[in-house]
């Protein structure tokens, strides 16, 4: 028991929670934005992979770190444009299109990476984002090292979560977004163009997903390798349901999830005789459990996965 308490009382755990949560916050917010407009984007896993690859590649070729993040975001928006063209303009199956984007974006990432970087025994690295100590706050005992010595993209992800919560609930744009996801016909009648809103939400959401991926190669690690996203995209899709499509809760859900992940990583060293695979399974099982608990209670956008064609019912 005391081993458990020791883990929870270490500042290192809480610092790790924020670090693990960051890509999930980006990805969950991106998926949430898209789904609030009425479109599920299962391209997330591939878009995160592509963002991780292209952001890293830009920095590897001499760009600075923020340019790398920007390149990743733009690439994400491009995949979002493809998804929007197929699911919004043509009204194709959002499930299958998204999976297709994931398969395409991830294999394209590996192709470009392999072309740009020849096979080497040790993968090449870049200098990643360094932790920034918030002046004053980082000197606080325990809380300082736990919460205020993160890299800038982590702080950015939290700012974006708060900003998104504000936009969704407090601005005309947010109202138009929610209308497009709840009832696009009514939105149209109010002079809102649901098609444009959906294009915008999918592209902006995909940009956020790609930034989550880029965080992996530019902050959490310093190199790119295939399959490094490891299902984080799918976990984000589950977190959106867990958050009941609310940005604030998405932030909370990602942090809660990251807490369990950081906790099990440290638990592995305490419980040495349990196979490590059991611990690695936990995030996925936890996501499934969260879905089972929340699916009925969550407030699904009413027009989610329904294509909207003007003049067609």
């Amino acid at each position: 028991m005391s081993a458990f308490l020791d883990i929870i009382a270490s500042a290192g755990l809480w610092a790790a929670v924020l670090r693990i949560a960051t890509p999930l916050i980006f990805g969950t917010l991106g998926a949430l934005l898209s789904e609030r407009s009425g479109v599920l984007n299962l391209g997330i896993e591939g878009i995160m992979t592509f963002g991780a690859m292209i952001g890293w590649l830009a920095v590897f070729n001499g760009a600075d770190l923020w340019t790398g993040m920007l390149v990743a975001a733009l690439s994400g928006a491009l995949f979002g444009l493809v998804h929007a063209a197929m699911t919004v303009s043509l009204g194709l199956s959002q499930h299958v299109t998204g999976l297709g984007i994931t398969l395409f974006a991830s294999s394209l990432s590996y192709y470009i990476f392999r072309l740009a970087v020849p096979l080497a025994s040790t993968p090449p690295t870049v200098t990643p984002f360094q932790p920034i100590s918030v002046p004053g706050l980082s000197d606080l005992p325990f809380i300082g090292p736990a919460l205020f010595t993160q890299t800038l993209p982590t702080y950015l992800s939290i700012v974006i979560a708060l900003l998104l919560a504000y936009i969704v609930y407090r601005t005309p744009l947010g109202l138009a977004l929610r209308m497009s996801g709840e009832n696009p016909h009514a939105a149209e009648a109010q002079g809102v163009d649901p098609i444009r809103i959906r294009y915008g939400a999918i592209m902006a959401g995909s940009a956020l997903m790609a930034m989550g991926g880029a965080f992996l190669t530019l902050s959490a690690f310093n190199s790119f390798f295939p399959t490094m996203v490891q299902g984080r995209g799918w976990i984000c899709i589950a977190l959106v349901v867990f958050a009941s499509w609310r940005p604030g809760r998405a932030l909370f859900g990602a942090l809660l999830f990251a807490f369990f992940d950081a906790f099990q990583l440290r638990l592995q060293t305490v419980l040495g005789n349990v196979p490590y695979q059991m611990f690695l399974m936990m995030p996925y099982i936890l996501s499934i459990a969260a879905l089972a608990v929340m699916a009925r209670r969550a407030r699904v956008p009413q027009a989610l996965m329904q294509p909207y064609r003007r003049g067609e019912r």
Partner: peptide
């Protein structure tokens, strides 16, 4: 079962189970 009992979208759950299954095999 999760879909019929709890109305959970089976896309995400069946995807997540892939990772669980491979880890089980690895174990």
């Amino acid at each position: 079962w999760l879909r019929l009992r709890f109305s959970v979208d089976e896309v995400v759950t069946s995807l997540l189970l892939n990772f669980v299954a491979v880890l089980f095999v690895s174990m």
